[in-house]
Simulated scan of single mutants.
Amino acid sequence: MPGDHSDRFPVDVAIYGSCVSRDMCEFWPEAQVKAYVARQSAIVRFGPVGASRFPTDALTSKFQARMYSDDKRGNAGNTIIRAGAGMLILDIVDERRGVWRFPDAKFLTNSVEAFRAGVDVWAPRMGARLIEFGTDEHFYLWRTAIEHLLGHARAHRKKSPFVTVFIDVDWAEATEGQPLPRGIKSALGAANRQVGRQFDRFVKSMQLGKPLDLVAEEVFERIPSPVEEIAKEARRMNVLSRRYAEVLAARSDFVVRRTVDELRMDPEHKWGLNAYHYSADNYRSIVESMREIVARRPSTDGATPRT
């Protein structure tokens, strides 16, 4: 757990992003989270579907139900304004799943919550189509939407301006304590682990009494490990997200950047193993950068210096 920093002044923050920013704040005792907007693409601002339009029965978590309802309202901008926080923390991880566009030009984020509510079944039946993250269509919609959202928030906070901080972190491609999968040593290690997985498959298949020819076919089929599968997706997302990151970096007062070389997945993370569930050391490193920003930001004249 983070150390005691009770001697530091509290910092009121609002988050428009994902668990990346929210989990970081758990290592930042001074941070007082006044608002947390997640699972909501900036694009829904163009035309929210409406809070009562689609079912929420499948969502048993109050937090998930609230995020889903908030997305249907498209209330990110107003939530940020009402929070009145002196710092707005941004990240783009929750844009990764894209958005649904309905025939009436309304939008719904393709969030995990929407998926649990059956969006992949009932949205296409209603004539909706998925606009995937990384496509030109998604990027240009998102760029216009995020510029409008930030402009709207700043216009309504002229008398109490806030500082924007973009948490620009790559998706991790290796677990804590492991090197990035590069070079001959990494290849040999991966090969050894592959042999182990194939042997385990052989034993299980024989125990199940499968025909020998089928067992041989299964055994010699390469089996990617969960980490390898996550790393592959992380590499893809790190490429797709760069132009989004460049847009948000240019429109933020401060940017906290961490590259794939620095970041590691935590296998024991409370939300499970994933490329954006980082090690405690990674979160602590980001927090130190946040403290530097707090120390540098002006407290009286409302100016917002850029790094």
Rank of each mutant, 00 (worst) to 15 (best):
H5T: 07
S6W: 05
D12M: 06
I15Q: 06
I15S: 07
R22T: 08
C25I: 08
C25K: 06
F27D: 01
F27C: 03
W28I: 00
Q32F: 14
V33A: 07
Y36K: 10
Y36L: 14
A42P: 13
R45M: 14
D57P: 02
L59A: 09
M67E: 08
K72Q: 15
N78Y: 11
I81A: 03
I81D: 02
I81N: 07
V99H: 01
T109S: 12
N110R: 14
S111W: 05
R116A: 02
G118F: 01
D120N: 04
W122K: 01
A123V: 07
P124K: 01
M126C: 00
T135Y: 04
F139N: 10
W142H: 13
A145R: 04
I146V: 10
I146H: 07
E147N: 15
R157L: 09
K159W: 04
T164I: 13
D168S: 06
D170E: 09
W171E: 07
E176F: 11
E176V: 09
Q178I: 01
L180R: 13
L180N: 10
P181V: 06
R182Q: 06
G183Q: 09
G183C: 04
K185S: 03
L188E: 14
K210P: 02
A216R: 13
P226W: 04
V227K: 10
I230M: 03
A231S: 07
R236V: 15
R236H: 02
L240A: 06
F254W: 15
V255R: 12
L263V: 03
R264T: 06
P267A: 05
E268Y: 06
K270L: 00
G272A: 08
H277W: 04
R284S: 06
E288P: 11
S289P: 02
I293R: 02
P298K: 12
P305E: 00
T307N: 13
T307M: 01
